[in-house]
């Protein structure tokens, strides 16, 4: 069953332009200039129930606009969308009972009161029966380990504690789809790890996770599928494993030889990143040279004591894809200008 489905979903905005200078400001009083801005263009998505999907892209790619359309906050300029069978912008309030949202930079907990009171209020907002509310609250307090600070005003909590409470609050009404926008932003290493573990647990319980994050650690650790958008359209939609496989033309090879060598001969496809005595760190372009071939060439130099083959960080992969797309977009614009 599909949790989220969109067909040719698009959104355009009107952005006002202000003329510089005092005279320009005066002119803007009676003459408004602006431009049409394409935020999302023809998005086709199919996300099954229980999936964990990373929805990523550079700043201004259209991620937030898409989330706002999927939660019913924005009306699309064209196209269709169904979230759990609801058309979000037509049935926003009904849909709200079935989805949860966590926005790392915005709080849904009331600042001056403890999480316990915010939970009570959210229970009422989501029209929960008192018995269900108490049971669910107890479950979440235990799962998220909130008891220590459950009755302390939110303003006095650490960011890690607050985010744990935010995530728990978003799950109070047992949503089937959870929209997470930068849920680990600003958290320290331990708190980030805790948050990721919790999100994984929630996903294991069957909740569909739709994650937007610039943190590649979040994406890699939480999601099995990656949808990348840029300039309002989908650039990549594939599993995490195939993303790595397809876009990892390079491998990072760390080698320790039995004996130190002075110079490494030039090998096409292998770029030495670091060389010290018997230790080497090589970036290998597998489209030009296979791992096996490199291994043989290294063996010719000296017996190999140890070797590790790793992928470059996901961050590099994503950055490369973004750069590649920007270059393509630039070319397209230049071509359009020429014609």
């Amino acid at each position: 069953m599909l949790a989220i489905e969109t067909k040719n979903l698009g959104k355009e905005f009107w952005r006002q332009k202000k003329t510089a200078g005092v005279l320009g400001s005066v002119r803007n009083l009676y003459q408004r200039d602006g431009e049409r801005l394409v935020a999302v263009k023809g998005l086709d998505l199919e996300i099954a129930s229980g999936e964990s999907v990373a929805f990523i892209g550079p700043n201004g790619a259209g991620k937030s606009t898409t989330i706002k359309m999927l939660t019913g906050i924005l009306h699309p300029s064209y196209g269709e969308a169904q979230v759990l069978g609801f058309t979000p912008w037509q049935e926003r309030q009904r849909l709200a009972f079935h989805i949860g949202t966590v926005f790392g930079q915005k709080s849904q907990l009331w600042y001056h009161i403890p999480p316990a009171d915010s939970f009570f209020l959210l229970g009422r907002i989501y029209e929960m029966e008192q018995r269900d509310f108490v049971r669910r609250q107890n479950e979440l307090v235990e799962l998220f380990d909130l008891s220590e600070f459950f009755h302390v005003p939110v303003r006095k909590l650490s960011l890690g504690q607050r985010m744990r409470a935010e995530l728990a609050a978003a799950l109070l009404h047992q949503p089937q789809v959870l929209f997470l926008d930068e849920p680990t932003i600003g958290l320290d290493v331990v708190a980030r790890q805790n948050m990721r573990n919790l999100i994984r647990e929630i996903n294991a319980l069957g909740v569909t996770v739709f994650l937007t994050s610039h943190d590649t650690g979040d994406i890699e650790n939480l999601c099995k599928r990656v949808i990348m958008i840029d300039n309002g359209g989908i650039v990549i939609d594939q599993s995490m494993n195939s993303l790595k496989r397809d876009h990892l033309a390079a491998k990072i090879i760390r080698v320790r030889l039995e004996a130190a060598i002075d110079n490494l001969p030039c090998i096409t496809g292998a770029q030495v990143l670091k060389h010290k005595g018997a230790g080497l760190k090589i970036a290998l372009d597998t489209s030009k040279l296979s791992i096996d071939e490199l291994y043989m060439r290294l063996r010719e130099l000296a017996p190999i004591a140890d070797i590790t083959i790793g992928d470059p960080p996901l961050e590099d992969i994503i950055a490369n894809i973004y750069r590649h797309n920007q270059a393509l977009e630039q070319e397209r614009r230049e071509l359009a200008n020429e014609t």
Binding site: K68, T71, G72, I73, L74, R92, Q93, R94, A96, F97, I99, T101, F103, K106, Q108, I125, Y126, E127
Partner: peptide, 12 residues
């Protein structure tokens, strides 16, 4: 701040 958009996503 745009927070209104997030409040609109609640059954309120």
């Amino acid at each position: 701040s745009g927070q209104i958009a997030y409040l609109l996503a609640k059954p309120l």
